[in-house]
Each structure stands twice: as C-alpha cells, then as structure tokens.
Design a protein around this nucleic acid. Sequence first.
DNA 1: GTCATGACAAAGA
DNA 2: TTCTTTGCCATGA
Length: 114
Amino acid sequence: MPKIENVNFFDLVYKVVRLIPRGRITSYGAIASYLGSAQSSRMVGWAMNSAHSLTEKIPAHRVVNRNGLLTGKAHFETIDRMQKLLEAEGLVIKNDQIKDFETYFWNPSIELAL
DNA sequence: GTCATGACAAAGA
DNA sequence: TTCTTTGCCATGA
C-alpha cells in the first residue's frame, strides 16, 4: 500500500491555508486542530514564517490568532500590509483586531468537513 | 550530533 | 481575574 500523503506538518498547513476563501479568516489553533494536532498551533505560525522561502503564495494574512488579533503582521513586508489585504477582502480591522471575527471565521474542520 | 527558538493555545496556580 | 508553564515539531546554529 503506497502512502497517500507522505507530507510534513508544514505542507499540510500550507495546503489548508491556501484553501481559505477570500474574505474569510481562520486561526492557528483551528488549523492545528484540523490537522489532528490541536497543540501544534505554534507550528502553524512557524510554517508561515517558513512560507517566505516558498514560491507558492500563502495567504498568511488570513490566519490570525484565536483572538482575531493580527499577531503576525510584523512578518509581512510592511506592518500595514496584512491589514490592507484583509480590508481589501471586506474585513474590518480595529486596533489590529478583526471586527466580528467570529462572523468571518473559517473553520477547516467544518468547511472541509469530511 | 545537541540546543534554542518560533506569526499560538490550553491548562494550572 | 492575570501570570506562568507546558506542549507541539521543524529549522538553523
């Protein structure tokens, strides 16, 4: 039996992040949980950090912490970059925090529900 | 080879 | 309630 998905945790993260629809956001924990490692949320963020070296586009701006706070904005080209991208997708950010976060929240465990 | 660190989150004190 | 600790695992020195 060949191994279907012989990929690393990072690869799975990238795959999920790329599936996030426009105008929606999700959290590191949600992704980690979806991947079966609810306690690996740190790796999700770390994957984003490593995503810079990838040629593929990772919509990392759609991934925020569970408070809807743009904690990773500092890792973008400019501090305003992340917020700009989100606002361009119809979201409203207030003090680095997404307004009505729960409304726009995209849960892979549900949206990608098996 | 080992050790430290990282865009988080949940549990304990 | 806030502050501290622990877990996760890949990456770089």
